[in-house]
Simulated scan of single mutants.
Amino acid sequence: MTALPHPAPGRFTAQIVSRGGLEAARDMIAGLLAPTPQITWPLLNAATGCDVLVKHENHNQTGAFKVRGGMVYMIPLKSERPSLEGVVCATRGNHGQSIALAARHVGLSATIVVPHGNNPEKNAAMRAYGATLIEHGDDFVESIAHAQALSTEQGLHMVPAFHPWLVAGVGTYALELFTAAPDLDAVFVPIGLGSGICGLMSARDALGLRTRIYGVVNETVDAYRRSFRAGEPVSCESAETLADGIAVRVPNPEALGAILRGAEDVLTVTDDEILAAMGLMFSATHNVAEGAGAAPLAALLRHRDALGLAGKRVGLILSGGNADRALFTRALSTLES
């Protein structure tokens, strides 16, 4: 089996992971995680005016794409450091569920740090997978700092939110998507810290395709949009959005370097547009999309005409379905207006 990539010095290219690395990751999780479907929904096609293919990462065991990266990170980590006893990470939820499940799979303890006010149902899920959950800080950045301190104090391995092994793992969804549908004109994908879009670009480039890839962020948490425009990391002031999966106000430099090389653009949507897209996704497909998972649909609806995508074949990454009950109730209320 081809070895997974290790971090390299200097700036990353758009193809962080080679085809061999993606296939190695795919082989590693075979039998542990089933491939997720990519489905065309007629009502969604009618609503968007496009031939839409939804990649259903909400069908994963943890309800989100991150579980792929967690498994692919944790298995070689334990192999390389057999005496390691535990790991720690910071998250808004899906990364933490992934790490908790993967750590349990290889026999490690997992400590997860989340900001105060985090999604209560994601918190409950992380505990259910065996993690020790700590609430600290007002946003993801402050939670990371506390997780790093715990790593030093307790001798825990700090699992980053961005790493080539994580990109290789989550990139397996893109390998599935592009193998099934190599003729996509464009794909819309939410950007949190960047592993999802980097895995998507890696798979596209590894397969020699020309699909345009659009990252999606919230217009008030737009660090990656600002950074894409500036060509260098630019933070934003707020992490306030209902879409916790994209509530990142400090971009990762390595992820940004790849995005600058491989993405067509980074687009913004509003919270109201995300709520409406969550409602539409449910009414058209009866799938639950969390805020980040609905952001690609929101972006297609908002930017379709400006991007010349009417009637085109478009992929949407439904990255996760872990919306809590209160938020999903708000999303369904948009269908009544």
Score class of each variant (00 low, 15 high):
327 L>H: 08
36 T>V: 13
209 L>R: 05
1 M>P: 14
58 N>E: 12
30 A>G: 08
224 Y>G: 05
7 P>Y: 02
113 V>A: 01
299 A>P: 12
171 G>W: 08
169 G>T: 00
195 S>A: 11
124 A>L: 13
86 G>V: 07
275 L>Q: 05
29 I>H: 04
28 M>N: 06
164 P>K: 04
295 A>Q: 00
20 G>L: 00
299 A>S: 13
31 G>C: 10
287 N>C: 14
140 F>D: 06
275 L>G: 03
263 A>G: 03
266 V>Q: 01
298 A>L: 08
243 A>V: 08
97 Q>C: 15
170 V>G: 02
173 Y>E: 13
141 V>N: 15
53 L>M: 14
296 P>H: 12
193 L>K: 15
42 P>A: 08
186 A>F: 08
82 P>T: 04
301 L>W: 02
25 A>G: 05
300 L>A: 00
73 Y>G: 01
56 H>A: 14
121 E>D: 08
311 G>W: 09
87 V>G: 01
230 A>N: 00
315 G>D: 02
307 L>I: 09
337 S>F: 14
145 A>C: 06
212 R>Q: 11
194 G>K: 08
232 E>V: 15
12 F>M: 15
53 L>N: 13
13 T>M: 11
302 R>H: 11
85 E>T: 11
164 P>R: 01
317 I>A: 11
72 V>F: 03
269 V>P: 03
270 T>V: 00
38 Q>I: 10
324 D>F: 09
23 E>H: 07
253 P>F: 02
175 L>F: 09
230 A>Q: 05
188 F>Y: 09
306 A>I: 07
127 R>N: 00
157 H>V: 05
324 D>K: 10
293 G>A: 06
43 L>K: 11
320 G>E: 02
189 V>M: 11
64 A>R: 01
